[in-house]
Write a protein that binds this DNA or RNA. Structure first.
Lengths: 344, 344
DNA sequence: TTTGGCACTCGCGTGTTCAGAGTGCCAAGG
DNA sequence: CCTTGGCACTCTGAACACGCGAGTGCCAAA
């Protein structure tokens, strides 16, 4: 028998589902008697006890103390999310509210800001939204502005409305004609192209200029490439940290590492980066690579202006969270943000 | 005698100072015996007790329970900060570290980001840094970029390195010549001027253009004015929220409202706004207007690229904080940020 | 396979006790 | 008049005991 994976019958699964639902609701270990009272399982507490013993044997649930009720394990939540739960669609009024709230945004910053607040409010958890990434987006326009004889400001505008600017210190004074030529050349070749392919398209560019101007052109190009390559410049916006107070009962210990993690953009980016491109990703408890987040779950999904995801957003909350509701909210918000981005 | 404000003699003040120092160190109510042991006051516990009774009478300290030690009140901290404490200067190595850390910044965003992290780390509290405000700064350059026939992007660059961009939907197609003329006109008149005075300087501008182009010019100007006026666009950066876990012992109750307050940029801006322009401002406990922050203190100060403050930064922590050290760190960081800004 | 019964376990809340820290007051001393 | 040692008093918090009740596992019967 050892090593054999027993198949759980339907009732056991129903019991697990009931346990998860009750525990998420009450935040307290749930016992056999309470279970049959609140869900009409059609069997007696004793039967449920047998099932629970089996579920515990398989590692789906766990009891904190001998005489306490059961709590789902990470593995239990995983099964619940994979097999037992349906994503709960938003109600029509909720959808209207989302739509309305996001429609008021005036620029990209505002879209992201509103999105993250909305998501935090809907899920009553910590929300994270990544700015539309540079990698997937395309060049809308490149602008060069002379600020001083040898100082040029480079402005990169993407199709997602994002703007990146950089100072360029040129080796010598830059003529306005050269600047204009360079501006035209850059836009002719790069506009509409994806950011990562731009460097390849501009490689030969210095050769098209006068010998004297080449150092300048090269310097500008170098800065541009740097800007394009700066993946780590990917920004993130956060909201709803106050919701962490409902994380657990043993406070400082659980909340501190989470707050620390949330301050590290790198960690958040990696977290979102692990999101599966197709569909929603749920990482439960210890499935999260980062130590500080082992008692939390992350629900994340990509969003984009078209058919394709340009960035990700998600929610971080206790493993004991309302997965169907959270997933529904995350999905709905992602969709609407995508639409908003496509419109603008 | 009633209503008379008694003068506290030097020893009572010394006792208060000792109480504040000990309480900040130990986080526990401090009694008469412990006091004389740790500070050589040259008197007996009984004498200290008498002084403590007087201090309590005057409202500077307070005992949580009959048989407990004393804790400073907000009023006590206030007196401590005003009369009993010296701002503690940073040590030379600390100053070097600050300098070194901030020197690595590549652009304004980075300066602010580094500053806020540094401040949080130095003080082990929550740090807040306001972006150099638009009001006080001057126009370095205004750029117009045609993105589509009737769509123009307006980019405003300030002397502090801040960049604001806005889409402008024009009433009709915009010729490149008009755009160039407008660009030149804008920069000639506005460059180097303070943002608030710019609208006045541009009032007559539409009259200088062809009748046909005036609607376009007006639209662009309107958007520009809007951008200039948008005080509330003032951004803020935050770090060190994880340090809140050391706020108090009764957790969720104290930390939640603080986290909520920290998420409201409006509240933070108002908080920093109350900073006295000259010198450092310390707001202790209930001196803070906002309800959620009555158990915290805010230490803030202005910083700027020249002699003049363009924005503010500060720290939020428990009323029981190391005021001299915190004030020293805040002052030092503000100075160095100012220098960095002046250099770039 | 399900179910009722039953004995058992154990956490948690309550109540009690006790030691220690701290106080206020008073009378004596400088 | 201020300071000081002594003393009685107060109160918290830790430690301990205790009993309730929720919950379990097992077993025999349906």
């Amino acid at each position: 028998m050892a090593g054999e994976v027993r198949q759980l019958d339907d009732r056991k699964l129903a019991v697990l589902r009931a346990i998860v639902q009750d525990y998420v609701g009450t935040e307290e270990p749930v016992g056999s008697k309470a279970l049959v009272e609140r869900h009409n399982l059609g069997v007696s507490p004793a039967t449920v006890r047998n099932d629970m013993a089996a579920l515990e044997e398989e590692g789906y649930i766990h009891q904190p103390h001998t005489s306490a009720g059961r709590i789902p394990t990470d593995k239990g939540y995983r099964l619940f999310v994979d097999k037992l739960a349906e994503i709960k669609p938003m109600s029509a009024p909720e959808r209207r509210a989302i739509r309305h709230f996001l429609d008021g945004a005036v620029d990209l910053d505002d879209v992201v800001a509103r999105t993250v607040r909305l998501l935090a409010q809907l899920t009553r958890q910590v929300a994270v939204v990544q700015y539309p990434s540079l990698t997937r987006s395309t060049v809308r326009h490149i602008e060069l502005v002379a600020l001083a004889p040898a100082k040029v400001m480079l402005v990169l505008i993407t199709n997602t409305g994002r703007v990146e600017q950089r100072m360029v210190d040129c080796p010598g004074p830059v003529g306005e004609t050269v600047l204009a030529d360079l501006r035209t050349a850059l836009n002719t070749r790069a506009a509409g192209r994806r950011l990562p392919e731009v460097p390849g398209l501009l490689e030969e560019l210095p050769a098209a200029f006068d010998q004297a101007d080449r150092p300048t052109v090269s310097t500008v190009l170098a800065t541009l490439f740097e800007t394009l390559a700066e993946q780590n410049e990917e920004r993130i916006m956060l909201a709803g940290t106050a919701n962490l107070t409902r994380l657990g009962h043993d406070f400082p210990l659980t909340i501190q590492p989470v707050l620390e993690a949330l301050e590290e953009q790198v960690i958040l980016l990696r977290l979102l980066g692990e999101t599966n491109d197709a569909g929603m990703t749920v990482r439960i408890g210890r499935e999260n690579a980062y130590e500080g987040l082992i008692s939390t779950s992350v629900v994340s999904v990509g969003y984009g202006s078209g058919d394709e995801s340009v960035a990700k957003l998600g929610v971080i909350g206790p493993t004991r969270m309302d997965y169907p509701g959270t997933m529904g909210a995350v999905r709905a918000v992602a969709r609407y943000v995508g639409q908003i981005l496509a419109e603008s």
